[in-house]
Nucleic acid binder design. Structure first.
Length: 254
DNA sequence: ATGGTGGTGCGACCA
């Protein structure tokens, strides 16, 4: 089965892209971020016409997460338990026997900014919660827009980005603490090359010049590692007219 | 190329 993550940067604008991509890629599960839609505006009937069910937790203008899947979702959880947060960034559900945890990690703006402190506190709360979730649900996929480039291979210009937001040691340390729970960056199970990105800035012709970062990740738990037979970044939707600044990333599970 | 684009919504903020 195919499991994907895509930051669509407004599902209102990108619904045609999502429909196109569902049709040609035929994923089983897709985690969406930055839907930017209140729940009553979520296009669940349009997606049902394409054969997909939806669960979603959105808000106006900012954030918003959803999981779109062929099979029904159960045990739906919004947010990190015990971590008060108005921002809709976390949505977990059980689908096809897998625990799917969809994340839109805080961006953080700049190292030292108050949003950066919020990002690190948020990641710490996430880690504490996931440690418990993994005990309950060994077959877990944690995926989404992590807003962290794991290492310098994931950065087009590591010197320019050194110690900058999305690349700082504290952010990478927080990601490594998540991985230490028994999670694996699926892309790195199958590829070790540099320059494979999932996000390119709209400015300065970032995509054309491949000035990107790999910040969209699919993590698989220890129990799923052996079933993970492929991991890819599908650059095609980033070439379409009026694209999201992110492109879909996906794994194939046996 | 030290600038630049895009979404929301009509300001200014966020990324």
């Amino acid at each position: 089965m195919k499991i994907a993550s895509w930051n669509v940067n407004s599902l209102n604008v990108r619904l045609p892209h999502l429909q196109q991509w569902l049709g040609q890629c035929q994923p089983d599960i897709v985690a969406l971020q930055e839907t930017k839609l209140e729940d009553h505006k979520f296009p669940d009937s349009e997606l049902a016409e394409a054969g997909y069910r939806s669960v979603f937790a959105g808000q106006k203008t900012y954030n918003g997460v959803a999981i779109v899947s062929r099979s029904a979702a159960s045990e739906v959880q919004v947010g990190i338990p015990g971590f008060a947060d108005e921002q809709k960034r976390v949505l977990a559900a059980t689908i096809d026997g897998l625990r799917i945890v969809n994340l839109y990690v805080v961006n953080g703006k700049a190292v030292g900014d108050e949003k950066y402190d919020y990002k690190l506190a948020w990641l710490d709360a996430l880690r504490q919660w996931l440690a418990l979730e993994l005990l309950r649900y060994p077959n877990m996929v944690v995926l989404g827009d992590f807003n962290i480039a794991p290492d310098d291979r994931d950065v087009h210009d590591p010197a320019a980005w050194k110690d900058q937001i999305l690349c700082s040691d504290a952010e990478r340390g927080a990601l490594n603490k998540l991985l230490a729970l028994g999670l694996h960056d699926s892309f790195r199970l199958h590829h070790d090359d540099a320059g494979q990105f999932s996000w390119w800035d709209y400015r300065a012709a970032g995509f054309r010049r491949n000035l990107g970062l790999r910040i969209d990740l699919v993590l698989v738990s220890d129990a799923l590692k052996a079933r993970c037979v492929g991991a890819e970044i599908d650059r095609e939707p980033r070439t379409w007219e009026r694209p999201s600044d992110h492109t879909p990333v996906l794994v194939e599970l046996q």
